[in-house]
Amino acid sequence: MLKFLNRDRLSYAVFFIAIAIIGLSVENYYYVQLLTFIGINTILALGLNMLMGYAGQISLGHAAFYGLGAYTTAVLTVHYGFSPWLALPCAILLSMLVAFLVGLPTLKLSGYYLGMGTLGFGMIVHIVFREWSSMTGGSSGFIGIPPLEIGPVSFSQIRNFFYLVWLTVLISFIVSKRLIHSRIGRALRAIHDSENAARAMGINTRNMKLEIFVFSAGLSALAGFFYAHLVSFISPGTFSFIVSIKIVTMVVIGGMASVWGSLLGASLLTMLPEWLHAFSEFEMVVYGLILMLVMVLLPQGLTRGLLDIYERTRSKKDQP
């Protein structure tokens, strides 16, 4: 019994209950919507965290996959009359296919050169979104993406969308954790520590990196799918270089190599601008300062950092 209730499963259960409680108790639509955006960003950050935190490969172009997911579902549902639920696998598969093709040559690069390679890819995709206006609506954006529906349940009701997104977050967490604890996960951590040593141990590092890159792109596309159907409008600006950097920031601020870190990072970076409204003109200055301060004070990220603080206070208490 106790074995069945291992800590992962217990935390999932607590997480599930937390979703239910928040979903039932938060009255104001504004907060429900904000929490839904946090969920979408968590999926996004989780995708990149798998790549950066576990495999140690940086990507400065992840907004491209986010955008591919959003634009694919938008084009398929509006121009070709697909049901969104049919467009979802198409969006994810297309994003994964692109990741595979791009990853093949790009993942041979390492360190900042990999950053540069993914950045260039992200820029190109962004320009395609902007210039292919017959398909994507160009800079003015793509309007009229239909809301999600399952039978009688309409997800244009933001509360329903909240449950949908957060249950997806939970499933993504479980899948990611599974992956991390599998043979692939162990191999990835070996690559993270030393790629040469990993190769010497007989790990096919190229395939492993490619697999996680593709997985990560799939998660980003999933986030893009949700974004498109929640806002029902997309424009290239939402998937620009700045956004790629923001996703990286979420991962690092939250804590690399931690699925819960993605959650914390995404929460902080989504909430911060809303909290900082009061600063009006000073918002940017304060925002920048907070980013710097968090990193200076908690260089391991929020997850590790908060745990450290917790442990320190506890050990103090233990000493009489």
């Binding site: 937390a18 409680i21 104001n28 907060y31 929490l35 819960w260 917790y310």
Partner: peptide
């Protein structure tokens, strides 16, 4: 270890709780 995880979740809950209730 469990309580560590719980702490994290509580933080999340606290964020959620902090931002909701605001009288209109």
């Amino acid at each position: 270890r469990l309580s560590k995880k719980l702490i994290l979740l509580m933080t999340f809950l606290a964020v959620g709780g902090f931002i909701f209730a605001c009288p209109a």
